[in-house]
Amino acid sequence: MKLILTADVPNLGAPGDIVEVKDGYGRNFLLPRKLAIPATRGAEKQVAAIQRAQKARQIRDLDHAKEVAGQLGGLSVTVTAKAAGDSGRLFGSVTAADVVEAVRTAGGPPLDRRAVEVPGHIKTVGTHAVTVRLHPEVTTDLNIAVVAG
């Protein structure tokens, strides 16, 4: 199955890449999650627009990624959860979008939520580590404090 990627897919490609994948992987994983669109003549014309939009969001180069990683290293990030039980268990979980919003309010650099990798589900208050993938060669760990709101 020939597809055009609309998002970064690990071990497959970047947005705008035209890839050939097995039918089941494309039908059951990539297409339902809106990570790819079928490669038709009309869609191939959209590749340039997809790549331009990705470049606008992307970290410029390796040096810029290292600079952003340095900014994130010295940042104290607190995520306020909506509610928690008596034992410190959250009603819900902390998502990558919550982490990005907390970094922005803490005065950090703007991040793409797809670059933030939250391990499993954060469902308790306390300090947790998340990974931020800024560049293919630069990843950084960010400690976040989750407090009940």
Rank of each mutant, 00 (worst) to 15 (best):
V132C: 09
D8N: 14
D8R: 14
I50R: 05
R60N: 12
V100N: 05
A115P: 00
L62W: 06
V146G: 02
K82I: 10
E117I: 12
K2H: 04
K66W: 05
Y25S: 07
G24P: 00
N28F: 07
A43E: 11
G126I: 06
Y25A: 10
A148S: 15
D17G: 04
L72Q: 14
A39L: 02
Q54I: 00
V130E: 09
R57Q: 10
D8Y: 11
Q71S: 12
Q71F: 08
D112T: 06
H135Q: 12
A96F: 04
G70V: 15
Q46I: 03
G73M: 13
S76R: 14
V146F: 01
L35A: 09
V146S: 02
G107Y: 01
G26C: 08
T95E: 10
I59M: 07
A49S: 14
P119I: 11
L142T: 13
V118W: 04
H64G: 02
Y25H: 12
D23N: 14
A84G: 11
I50N: 08
I59R: 03
E117A: 13
P136F: 11
V21W: 01
A145K: 15
A48G: 09
G120F: 06
E67I: 13
V147W: 06
T139D: 15
R133D: 13
I50S: 02
D61L: 05
H121I: 12
L62P: 02
P109E: 03
P15R: 06
G42S: 11
A81T: 12
A148P: 01
Q51G: 02
Q51D: 05
A115V: 01
L72R: 14
A56H: 01
I144F: 04
D112I: 08
E137N: 15
A36H: 00
V77A: 11
D61E: 07
R89L: 07
G108K: 00
L90G: 04
A36D: 02
L62Y: 14
P109K: 01
Q71P: 03
G74E: 09
R27K: 12
R60H: 12
A84I: 05
K22R: 14
A84Q: 12
V147M: 12
T139S: 15
A106L: 03
R104T: 14
H121M: 12
A96C: 06
G70A: 14
A102H: 02
I122C: 04
T40G: 07
Q71A: 13
E20M: 09
D63M: 05
G42C: 03
R89G: 06
R89Y: 08
D23Y: 08
N143T: 15
V147T: 15
Y25M: 10
A145Y: 03
